[in-house]
Amino acid sequence: MSSPRPGFRHPDLPKNDLGYTRRDYEGAASTLCAGCGHDSISNAIINACYELSLEPSGIAKMSGIGCSSKTPAYFLGKSHGFNSVHGRMPSIATGANMANRDLTYIGVSGDGDTASIGMGQFVHIVRRNLNMVYIVMNNGCYGLTKGQDSATADRGSAGKKGRPNPFESIDLCELAIALGAGFVARGFSGDKEQLVPLLKAAIGHRGFALVDVISPCVTFNNTAASTKSYQWVRDHMEATSFFDFIPPRKEITTQYGKGTTQSVTLHDGGVIHLHKCDESIDVTRRRCAIDALEQHLEKGRLLTGILHINESLNDTHDILETTETRLNTLTEKDLCPGNQVLQDMMENYR
């Protein structure tokens, strides 16, 4: 059961550009297991939105069903949220975005919610390039139904029940890149230094942004034999690059050397400076991005960071050529052609 956090406000809490404190971005107290990776991701979302000085009422939180999908209740308490049904968050987000193109949509899903029951909706929202951030809290299992293997569990990985998963796993990032997503990143709930900037960059991206966050389930899948455990991820993760995300209207103060640093300007004017760890990986090229993922998989390593970015894509509204005005603000005057038009039209049916 969720309860509001105590309302105590420290007068000296730091404020962001809008005058909000970090607390203004918090939600109800979490009811997840202590140590659950999902809570760390909620915190990273809070930090990202606070640091970007987003207006909380300008954000809509969307989710499906699962422990992960409960988290929108635990962050951004001043934003509207919609906890829908299992695997169907993408469709709700699509409709919501069609109605109001000006909100920032943050979707939260689980690996069961996305890679199994919601796979159909997931691949199609990628294809449509809906402008939203889609976070998968990926623990390789179904937390809420007590630990069954999910479709992202690696073959041979074993959770608390001890039986190695016999099936091939789905890499949502590779899939999304193949489907033409414009922003694909992977993070780890245990690495907020990397995760917070990833989320900020994802929010800055216009179009569909997938952030697949490995998020250990301490109760069912944090075993020595699991490839979604804290220990395994810490030991095996590598990053494509370290990067700085410079939001729009912020002054660029650091100078970077040529060659290893690549800069990508986002739609809203923000800039990402990627300092490559591996010079051979060009994340702006789709083929290269997929190769990088496959090569790391072969080596038994987990590739993280921004995996692919392409700022030149049209989002759903561009594709549908919808008006710039939010559809949910249109009135009779804009929508109803009136009786005269109707009567003229009637002549075609006589």
Partner: peptide
């Protein structure tokens, strides 16, 4: 789902 998301959001 699309129709519901839109209606929830005031369209």
């Amino acid at each position: 789902g699309i129709a519901l998301g839109a209606s929830w959001n005031g369209a």
